[in-house]
Design a binder for these strands. Structure first.
Lengths: 187, 187
DNA sequence: GACGAAAGTTAAGCATACTTAACCACGCAG
DNA sequence: CTGCGTGGTTAAGTATGCTTAACTTTCGTC
């Protein structure tokens, strides 16, 4: 029960990951500057300066006052990994789970820097496998679509024919935000 | 490109989610106290007091100085949802992706409060489906295991027979932390 | 009913990641 | 070669979520 505290010991914070991605992307697009990063991320220039100092200290970026901004090799590596993680997750959420693109993108963005490399590899394999022309994968896509539809319009009974025994709708209902009329109790 | 800033606007922070879970769990086990929460989470009692004030302000817990600790209905709901999310994700990472239990637990813990309810529902369905005795699911488990094994000991060539064209090992290699001898460059 | 330990609290301090306001640096126009 | 505007910086302030140290409250024991 100590795992949870490692949240803040992750190699990259959510902010740092997005700074690295922004710098990498802007560099590819021709050139980076404090203003460009600020605009891209929607933060103040002062915030960028301060984060660049922090990234430089960590050996992920190079930046001297009034100088230009570049990533170190390590910074480039982490930027690339984070970008690829986000892409893999977006594809998984969108293509496999069937989420709408906006939610898929958002969920991927939230967790991209938190999922272990080992998991990422397996997400990638699973997504690739389920999207491939492997006959089992094709059959899966068909069956899972039916399964989801049946579940969507499923029975209210405890014995769901789709779920082979226990109907998942019970659990689902509790997962989706139900209560919406109690927000004013926050005073 | 503004999604990333919503990270800190999430309903629950990582810490808050774990406080709610701890309180719920301790309540079920007989009784909650500041000390018990502190011990469970491995934080100081002062930290607990301060977080309880914050949770009370947000309408998720009830706590008066030197009084006992309880969750509001909303707090209970969020605690239950978070716990269930973690369970679903742990099952997915462990049973479907095939991660070792420790990593599965850790990854689930990191992202449980960040994944949208909609995604959680689909994670649940996918896990349930792939673990079911549905014939397609059974075939999937077999095929995906073979696929992973083949990938693990796969070819070095660009044309991988498993991946039906482009070998994923290229991408995998970049995802897994490779460089390990540059850590002292942080000065 | 006083006493001391355990439980709980406040206060002060730290780190992160922002904000605004105000101040510096630099290059180009005249 | 002066001056001004843009880009960039520091400084100070905010919020979160911790820490330790010191203080208060409560309660069981005698």
């Amino acid at each position: 029960m100590e795992t949870w505290k490692r949240f803040h010991e992750k190699q990259l914070t959510h902010s740092m990951a997005h700074y690295l991605q922004a710098i990498a992307s802007l560099t590819r697009a021709g050139g980076t500057s404090v203003s460009a990063i600020a605009e891209r991320l929607g933060v103040s220039k002062a915030g960028v300066t301060s984060m660049l100092r922090s990234l430089t200290t960590r050996g992920l970026a190079k930046h001297e006052p009034y100088g230009d901004v570049t990533l170190t090799v390590e910074g480039q590596r982490l930027a690339a990994r984070t970008e690829r993680s986000r892409d893999v997750l977006t594809e998984f959420f969108g293509e496999i789970l069937g989420l709408d693109p906006a939610t898929a993108e958002e969920d991927a963005c939230m967790i991209e820097h938190l999922v272990s490399p080992d998991s990422m590899v397996r997400f990638l394999r699973l997504t690739a496998f389920l999207r491939s022309d492997h006959p089992t994968a094709e059959r899966f896509r068909e069956a899972f679509r039916e399964y989801q539809n049946a579940c969507e319009s499923g029975t209210e009974s405890a014995h769901c024919p789709v779920c082979h025994g226990r109907c998942l709708r019970v659990a689902l209902e509790e997962l989706i935000d139900p209560v919406e009329g109690e927000k004013e109790s926050l005073s």
